[in-house]
């Protein structure tokens, strides 16, 4: 009897451990593509790799979590789990009578070691596709299995969401161009939410390094009611241009998160906000 109970308890404890482990990394769990859909697929010619790009929804202006899945192009079944991947988003804007203008966007390249056999990364598209502005997403693959390199190119359409989660602004102190993306909350709820931003500096048309040197203050507000919410935690830098904090929403409806970006205690942004709908 006793041993039965013990068995039961151990089984329970074990399952709890397993369960909580699963929970810990549920974004990229064994079913790491759960809730995602395949946005694009193509071949990285020269790398013997078929490239699939998975995301929650179609590409949009803002911080896109993208998962790259690589298959051996020889059998199309075997996943490539040892590779180097580089995102190269490219916007080409054709202007009447002028040379087309080309620029990139901030990226977070997947690590060499995959998570559950897939490669999560991110791209922050800074503007939508338009008639005259065309986005291309290039994914450079270095297939370590065969030590071959190649690039897959995708013509993509970047949507412009009603409530943008990304803004490009010029700092008021030293006129730097910064890309501020709100990574989280992606599905805001009433209650306490994680809030996360990234800051990338637009150092050049093709160069968007992550910047850890700022501080961010947030003030959520419900404009029509004229109230905010208590106990928000200002995001703090967690490295690689990421800033994490907490935001509280007291009710459903149309919220506005006012953001002040500071450097050395001095505000460098003006009138920044993100609209959030719950």
């Amino acid at each position: 009897m006793k041993s039965n109970i013990q068995k039961f308890i151990y089984t329970l404890a074990l399952s709890i451990v397993i369960f909580s482990c699963q929970k810990e990394d549920n974004i990229i769990s064994s079913n790491s593509l759960d809730g995602l859909s395949k946005l694009k697929e193509g071949y990285a010619i020269g790398a013997s790799a078929k490239v699939e790009i998975w995301g929650k929804k179609n590409f949009f202006v803002g911080y896109n979590n993208l998962v790259v899945v690589l298959y051996d192009s020889l059998n199309l079944k075997e996943k490539i789990t040892d590779a180097h991947i580089h995102f190269m988003p490219l916007m080409t804007m054709s202007m009447m009578g002028q040379m087309p203008m080309v620029h990139a966007a901030p990226v977070e390249n997947p690590s060499e070691t995959p998570v559950n056999d897939v490669f999560p990364g991110a791209v922050a598209f800074i503007m939508p596709s338009t008639e005259t502005g065309v986005w291309q997403l290039r994914v450079a693959v270095h297939n370590h299995k065969y030590d071959k390199e190649g690039t897959a190119s995708f013509n993509i359409n970047v949507d412009s969401p009603t409530n943008s989660s990304l803004t490009v602004f010029t700092t008021t102190t030293d006129s730097l161009k910064l890309v501020l993306s709100m990574v989280q909350p992606t599905t805001p709820k009433v209650g306490m939410n994680d809030i996360e931003f990234t800051i990338h500096q637009k150092a050049g048309m093709m160069d968007f390094p992550a910047d850890d040197s700022y501080a961010i203050e947030i003030t959520p507000e419900m404009p029509s009611m004229g109230h905010g919410s208590p106990n928000n935690v200002n995001p703090t830098n967690t490295g690689n241009g990421h800033y994490k904090g907490k935001v509280n929403f007291t009710m459903t409806g149309e919220w506005k998160i006012n953001v002040v970006v500071k450097k050395n205690g001095v505000a460098v942004s003006q009138n920044l906000y993100f609209n959030v709908v719950i």
């Binding site: 009433v190 419900m222 029509s224 009611m225 007291t250 009710m251 459903t252 409806g253 149309e254 709908v277």
Partner: peptide, 14 residues
């Protein structure tokens, strides 16, 4: 909430 001349805002629920 609705302002005249605008679409009604999303309901605020709690």
């Amino acid at each position: 909430m609705r302002y005249a001349g605008f679409a009604p805002e999303l309901p605020m629920y709690m």
